[in-house]
């Protein structure tokens, strides 16, 4: 607690803590106090700044500016992104304009070539099916489980949170190998279990439907905990008073979700969905390990097909071209989702 801050004031900043009177009246008083304290702090800062003798040095002024300090603090990250993200991105743009032997500039020739390929359009369709289905299920499962976890009291909740995060913290290349063994044609644990019920054997990775089902299942298993943790954080920031008020008004559980939870979580849902959509769209390891794109290319995604075309078939410009196709699709999704977020931000 900062010196001079009253116990009441500190509590007001954390209205959900145990032992706090959460009635609307007391909450109002706490907020007022906290607000007035914040003013004092700001005024103190201003006083100190005004008392400081002015220096003529422009450099010192510049260095003293918050924005300059912020820039220098973020500089290492900016450099890292420039080196590992911007440079490869621009280099792949350059590569995409070369011929297969990388000796000649062909402009948009590679792109027009791709438009005529049946497999390319199949990959576009599959990437959309994979990403949209996986993100919807991840969001749904994350939302439901976040509610369950939110309702678990105290210490037990911490244990559940830890356990449910396990799929997300294991490197996917490793966990996908475990899934590969579960789906394995010779030693499938799933088929072994199903055989006791007279079902199967199911060609998990050998038929288009089951292969797509399997890669989406593994992606959902891996990604749902991310949604869970984001939604849980969002749920915890929804003030209880709103639910209490809704309960007084006679709202049922569905109305509480529809009129309170969802509107309060909208921005988090939008950002999480966008982030997950980008990562899922660019997925490589799960498909590469489970199916290598098969059977009959029906599970290929942009990244896996780009690898097959670019590295395995030694056509690096075409591979770069395939991977670049993700950019416009994701850009459109990002514009729609982020526009909505900023609109709500302005309304607020």
């Amino acid at each position: 607690m900062p010196p001079g801050m009253s116990r009441q004031g500190a509590l007001a900043l954390r209205p959900h803590d145990k032992g706090v009177d959460r009635s609307p009246a007391s909450s109002f008083i706490f907020r007022q106090k906290a607000h007035s304290m914040a003013d004092v702090v700001v005024q103190q800062g201003r006083l100190v700044r005004n008392a400081r003798p002015r220096k003529a040095s422009g450099l010192r002024n510049m260095l003293g500016r918050k924005s300059t300090v912020a820039f220098f603090l973020t500089l290492p990250l900016i450099l890292l992104i420039a080196l590992l993200v911007l440079y490869p991105a621009f280099f792949s743009l350059y590569l995409a304009t070369l011929n297969k032997a990388m000796t000649k500039f062909v402009g948009l020739g590679n792109f027009t070539f791709l438009f005529k390929r049946e497999t390319f359009w199949m990959v576009v369709k599959q990437s959309c099916i994979f990403a949209v289905t996986a993100v919807v299920f991840k969001a749904l499962i994350g939302f439901i489980v976040a509610h369950f976890v939110h309702n678990i009291p105290g210490k037990k909740q911490r244990k559940w949170r830890g356990m449910l995060l396990v799929p997300w913290v294991i490197p996917p290349a490793m966990s996908t190998l475990a899934w590969l063994w579960l789906f394995d044609p010779s030693y499938s644990a799933f088929n072994y279990t199903l055989s006791f019920f007279g079902v199967g054997p199911i060609p998990w990775l050998g038929e288009t439907f089951w292969a797509r089902f399997s890669v989406i299942l593994v992606n959902v298993w891996y990604g749902a905990p991310f949604f869970l943790i984001m939604y849980l954080a969002a749920l915890k920031s929804v003030p209880d008073q709103l639910y209490e008020a809704a309960a007084i008004d006679g709202a049922n559980w569905w109305q509480k979700i529809w009129y309170i939870t969802l509107p309060m979580m909208r921005n988090i849902i939008a950002i999480t969905t966008l982030f997950s959509l980008i990562v899922t769209f660019a997925n490589f390891d799960i498909v590469r390990i489970l199916t290598s794109g098969g059977p009959l290319d029906t599970t290929h995604l942009f990244a896996t097909w780009a690898f097959q075309v670019g590295i395995q078939s030694s056509d690096i410009p075409l591979g770069a071209c395939v991977s670049l196709f993700m950019v416009p699709i994701l850009a459109v999704a990002a514009i729609f989702i982020l526009r909505d977020v900023s609109k709500r931000g302005n309304e607020a």
Binding site: P203, E207, P295
Partner: peptide, 11 residues
């Protein structure tokens, strides 16, 4: 085998 279309080099 029914799932031969999904076999890799270890299968």
């Amino acid at each position: 085998p029914a799932d031969a279309p999904s076999w890799d080099d270890a299968s």
